[in-house]
Each structure stands twice: as structure tokens, then as C-alpha cells.
């Protein structure tokens, strides 16, 4: 195996594009190195992107936020502007693993690992985040929900890497939240999860909503019916019940060592309901 630490995205793309054998991007390494140790993958080349300036910081612009691909999740919480605008995305990122993992893991890594149970993906999907993809053919931007196409599989082509995630500009009276269920209080992989992003009108009525669920299908699912269930409401209990039912209907989970079909389906609805209430409060709703 070869290890390379290029200084530019262009150089990284060229290394990945020209690699013979299996090449992997290394950012925080909290998934990649675990898979290497467990012999699930045997890379021929690791391209460490942490020394590439364009991946290293969080930038705020008129269009929203740009979060570099090697920014560790711990750093998201240290950016007050980001926490204020996207508390749900930040809390999702900060739920991954321990403080030790937080120092290393990245949102882009979480996305590219493409686990159905990834914590940041439902929050990013709810937030309408996009991935800035750079490859041999140049740059493109892709909605986050289109990056993952199956468990462990992304739509990235050979030579492509994600340089950053962008989060859109926040309208007034908006809020987001992310909740997951784990058996312990820390360190577990989500058994199921829900990300909710809302914008309210002046009266506190939900005027736009996005609801995404994790670990209940092969990929994170955006649930338009769940959004519909609460748009036009002030999140009264009937609306929340409709939201939960719509979420349950969108679940197509599996039985595995972490949870049952029944449990995941039922709790996904509960979490969506609870997350919606938090997002609503954050958006200024009462």
C-alpha cells in the first residue's frame, strides 16, 4: 500500500484517477482505518486530503456555509455562526462516536462511507446540503441525497472526491434538529434516526419542511409525505401523529444485531415527532 498526502485537490484527483488497484480517500480515517484493520478492504493507495487547503476550513458566505472535507466534526461545534444557523446538522455531526472520534471524523467521510445509519446524512438531507465534487472532468455540485446509492456505495466516479459540503442560506424563522436512537447514551451506531428542517411564517405556521430518516432503508430516505403532514400546521398533536405515521410508512428496514424491523419502524416515527418539536422551537415557534 502507498500513502500520499497531496497539497491540492487537483493533485489528489490525479492520484486517484491514475491509481492502479484500489484507491481510497483518507480524511478522518475513523471508518476507513477500521475497515482496513478488519480486512474488509485492502487499499493499494490512500490519498490523505487533510493537507489540502481547500478542505480545511468552514466558510460563511452570502449563499450559506461551505464546510471543507477534512474539517473534523468537533470543529463544527466550535463555529458559533454554523451552530446558530444549522444546529441540527451540527448536533448530528457531534453525535458520531466519542470525543476521540469527533477530533477526526468528518461529514464528508460520514457521507462517503455511505452507511444507511450515518448520522450526518439525514440532517444534511433535511438541510438541503450539497456536495462539491471534484474529478478529472472538473467540478460539479450534487444534492447530498444523490451521493449515496446503496449501503457502502456512492455515485462518485473513479478519480472523483468531495472537496466540501455546502449548506444553503437560512431564511428567517427556520430551525432544524436531528435525533437518533441508540441503546447506550454514547458510542453506538444509530438504530434509527430522524432529521427535520422547518421554516415558519410570521404566525408560526410551518411553511416549508423536510424530513429525512436514517437506518430504516438501504439509504437515508427523504419523506415528502411526512413534510406534507406538518406544512400548514403549528405542529398540533394531530399533525405530529400524521408525521409519525408518514415516517412509519416510509420505513423499509431490516432485522439485524442493532434492531428489529418493528422497533426501527415504530421508533423512527417517535424520533421524527420529537425532532420536529425541537426544530419548531428553534425556528421560533411556540
Amino acid at each position: 500500500m502507498r500513502y500520499a498526502a497531496p497539497l491540492t485537490t487537483k493533485e489528489a484527483v490525479s492520484l486517484l484517477a491514475n491509481a492502479k488497484g484500489k484507491a481510497f480517500v483518507l480524511a478522518g480515517g475513523t471508518d476507513l482505518l477500521v475497515r482496513m484493520r478488519g480486512d474488509y478492504i485492502e487499499p493499494d493507495l490512500l490519498v490523505d486530503i487533510k493537507r489540502i487547503t481547500a478542505t480545511q476550513d468552514i466558510k460563511k458566505s452570502a449563499n450559506g456555509f461551505r464546510i471543507g472535507a477534512s474539517v473534523p466534526c468537533a470543529a463544527l461545534n466550535e463555529n458559533a455562526g454554523l451552530v446558530k444557523a444549522w444546529p441540527g446538522v451540527v448536533e448530528a455531526a457531534n453525535l458520531i462516536g466519542s470525543d476521540q472520534i469527533q477530533s477526526r471524523c468528518t461529514m464528508v467521510g460520514n457521507l462517503c462511507n455511505a452507511s444507511p445509519a450515518a448520522d450526518t446524512i439525514p440532517a444534511m438531507v433535511a438541510a438541503q446540503a450539497s456536495a462539491v465534487i471534484v474529478g478529472p472532468a472538473g467540478r460539479r455540485t450534487l444534492a447530498v441525497e444523490k451521493v449515496v446509492i446503496g449501503p457502502g456505495k456512492t455515485s462518485l466516479k473513479k478519480g472523483e472526491l468531495i472537496e466540501a459540503i455546502t449548506l444553503p442560506k437560512r431564511p428567517a424563522k427556520s430551525g432544524d434538529a436531528y435525533l437518533r436512537f441508540i441503546p447506550r447514551t454514547e458510542m453506538d451506531i444509530a438504530v434509527c434516526s430522524a432529521g427535520v428542517n422547518l421554516t415558519l411564517d410570521a404566525q408560526g405556521v410551518v411553511k416549508a419542511a423536510r424530513v429525512a430518516l436514517g437506518a430504516v432503508a438501504p439509504t437515508v430516505v427523504l419523506v415528502p409525505d411526512a413534510a406534507k403532514a406538518i406544512v400548514g400546521t403549528k405542529l398540533d398533536s394531530a399533525a405530529l401523529e400524521r408525521l409519525a405515521k408518514a415516517c412509519e410508512a416510509a420505513c423499509a428496514p431490516i432485522d439485524d444485531k442493532r434492531g428489529t424491523v418493528e422497533f426501527r419502524t415504530e421508533v423512527a416515527g417517535v424520533l421524527a415527532r420529537r425532532a420536529a418539536k425541537i426544530a419548531y422551537e428553534r425556528a421560533g415557534g411556540k
Partner: peptide, 11 residues
């Protein structure tokens, strides 16, 4: 230790 879940400090 990921899926054999012994109590962590916050549990």
C-alpha cells in the same frame, strides 16, 4: 466493543 455494548461512563 461497537456492538457488544458494555456500559460507558455516561450510561
Amino acid at each position: 466493543f461497537l456492538d457488544y455494548r458494555i456500559p460507558v461512563c455516561s450510561d
